[in-house]
Amino acid sequence: MQPLITFTEYGLFCQPGNFYIDPWLPVDKAIITHAHSDHARWGSKEYLCHRGCKPLLELRLGAGTYQPVEWGDIIYVNGVRVSLHPAGHIIGSSQVRLEYQGETWVVSGDYKTEDDGISGAFEPIRCHSFITESTFGLPIYDWEPQEKIYDDMRSWVQGNRESGFASILIAYSLGKAQRVSVCLSAITEKIYAHGAIANAQEILRQSGFNLPSLTRITPETPREELKGAIILAPPSADGSSWMRKFQPYRTGICSGWMQVRGNRRRRNADAGFALSDHADWKGLLKAVHETGAEKIFATHGFQSAFSRYLNEQGVKAYEVKTDYGDMEEENDSVGDSTI
């Protein structure tokens, strides 16, 4: 019997249902796990996604046919039972559960197992086959609890304020920026943001998500107002001339890659916060274990190390080559193009 999901040049394909999940080329019907650029690509005829994901897809991909659903809603597509479940990665991110002739598959998309308070808590789902990400699939990635990192970020910002520096926090505009805004709203009334981040935040607030409002930085924003301010900026703005007007400032990068010193140094930031929207090593192992799956397919990241380790632990695992970027915390699709 052919497996329920096959790996094709277009992406993950469900043959009996005749649809794709996060395809990287245009197809007729696409189910989208979340709005990051390596998962949600332009050009497909129909998209199905979570309600929270829809406005973000519209922002990124423009007008089109988007069918929003709630977590747990059951939809049949050509006889395949499809449902979405929280993945805890970013707002609107979902795992996709497929069931057909007694066979259950779950595609994780990207996920994190710690509840960040805004993206929905990751929900382990029992299945026969589990397609998991492995962006941070090495034991060196062992995240501190969110509250600890938030404390560190806040005291870093306070320190900057006291010495007269603006704080620029570099955060991916979908996901990370929302978390950082919530973290910092505890110590400030006003958070400034680069247009890319302000756009995403506005759309999400309009869609009913309870997030702090951000002050958009425009060429008209007076310099004096920005002295010692708190500013959110996407990675694409890091080191650009856009940052000049905040001088004197310090930059702090919020990314799981900051776990390793060499990366912190290389990015030339004043501070690095290992705040990630992906599961760490223990999170990945726990998630895999809780699905009870017989077969694990590891995609983007350290898939070869992760699948090898699982096999040694007696869990059947395969390594899958995909087009999902393993630097997705670095690229930023809501970047300058939409300003």
Binding site: W257, N263, F302
Partner: peptide, 8 residues
Amino acid sequence: GHGRRSNL
């Protein structure tokens, strides 16, 4: 790489 961006 060594000591560089981990996964490159």
